[in-house]
Design a binder for these strands. Structure first.
Lengths: 189, 189
DNA sequence: GTAACATATGGGGTGACACCCCGTTTAGCA
DNA sequence: TGCTAAACGGGGTGTCACCCCATATGTTAC
């Protein structure tokens, strides 16, 4: 979770504040979701709100920073699955992992969905999309996935499910159940 | 869209204000979605914000009032389909209608999903659930739907898709496409 | 018609928020 | 050690949800 410096090397105090804000944001977002109070995050980090806004000009950018570690995990997992598993299983296992991450990290789904349609800060969305595309292509070659389906379809579906179940009592199980339904179809085999 | 009086007959001016607030809320929600400014709605309706809060103690209750007409349409449609159509087609046609309504009325999906898990104002959610249950039961009897699937599963899925596509360029088409994917399954037949 | 009363109103207060300006502080370097 | 650019944060602005209570208004009984 230690975030590397950004572009031109930051001054030491700036780097320290950046890290503190990020740590506070992780805690706040885990507790309150994607619409956690930015002022509260700044307060917890022990910096003025202006400093937070300077380091993270928009909520979206802050959320991307918070979730980037999780997203990297997901991308690495995609790589591993592409190497190890049978194409169809690999893709579906990975989709389950995406949903699991999104439900256990309040706000991740929102951040990813918004990232797909805003001009800034689409980094996380692009990373996940690229990681998933490889898995999907392999699955398509094995004819294990309905033709014409694209990776954004699957990811939108996964995030939609996570988003909708986010505030249910046991979100994880419910989301998994709905993902299964979507994968195998509402109609019986 | 003319809303009947609530419980004890309202005073004439109160009823008039109620209707004006509702009309302003419809316009604002259509424009800004479920998180439209309540103060702005009160301003447009030409009443003080306290009056709005007296008539609609929570945002959720206001949203339910705004959408109740749409929800009634959906419920009527369910009844018609249950009478006319083949069980499986009826259910799927209706699910498409639910998604279409939810995407063309910004905030409807949010309101319905929240209504399912909050103690107050679950009226709309209950109405839709009951209407859909009948269609689903008929479809189950015809063995046209995967066993074990419940109406809340289908509605959550439909709302999830609407919610996730709400801010995409052509939300309607995209939502329909994803619903199809979920209905027929990610895996090929 | 009018008096009396319950009902309804809305200006304005409170506290939280996002976001930003600009005078002050400080790290990094010669 | 002193200079300068970089970074900071107190405090301002405008917005919001929500509520209190003095005032106004419709309703009803006479």
């Amino acid at each position: 979770m230690t975030e590397g410096r950004k572009r031109g090397p930051l001054r030491a105090d700036a780097q320290r504040n950046y890290d503190q804000i990020l740590a506070a944001a992780e805690a706040a977002v885990a507790r309150d979701g994607a619409d956690a109070s930015l002022e509260e995050i700044a307060r917890q980090a022990g910096v003025g709100s202006a400093t937070l806004h300077r380091h993270f000009p928009s909520r979206q950018i802050l959320l991307e920073a918070v979730f980037s570690a999780k997203v990297e995990t997901l991308c690495r997992q995609a790589k591993d699955l592409a190497a190890d598993a049978e194409p169809s299983d690999a893709l579906i296992t990975w989709l389950r992992a995406v949903v699991a991450h999104a439900t256990s990290n309040r706000g991740l789904a929102t951040a990813l969905l918004r990232g797909a349609h805003e001009s800034f800060g689409t980094t996380c969305h692009a990373m996940i999309t690229d990681a998933g595309r490889e898995l999907l292509e392999r699955a398509h070659e094995a004819e294990a996935i309905r033709p014409g389906v694209e990776i954004v379809d699957l990811l939108t579906l996964a995030n939609a499910i996570a988003l909708a179940t986010e505030q249910e009592p046991n979100a994880g199980a419910r989301a998994e159940q709905l993902l299964d339904l979507a994968i195998y179809g509402v109609r019986p085999t």
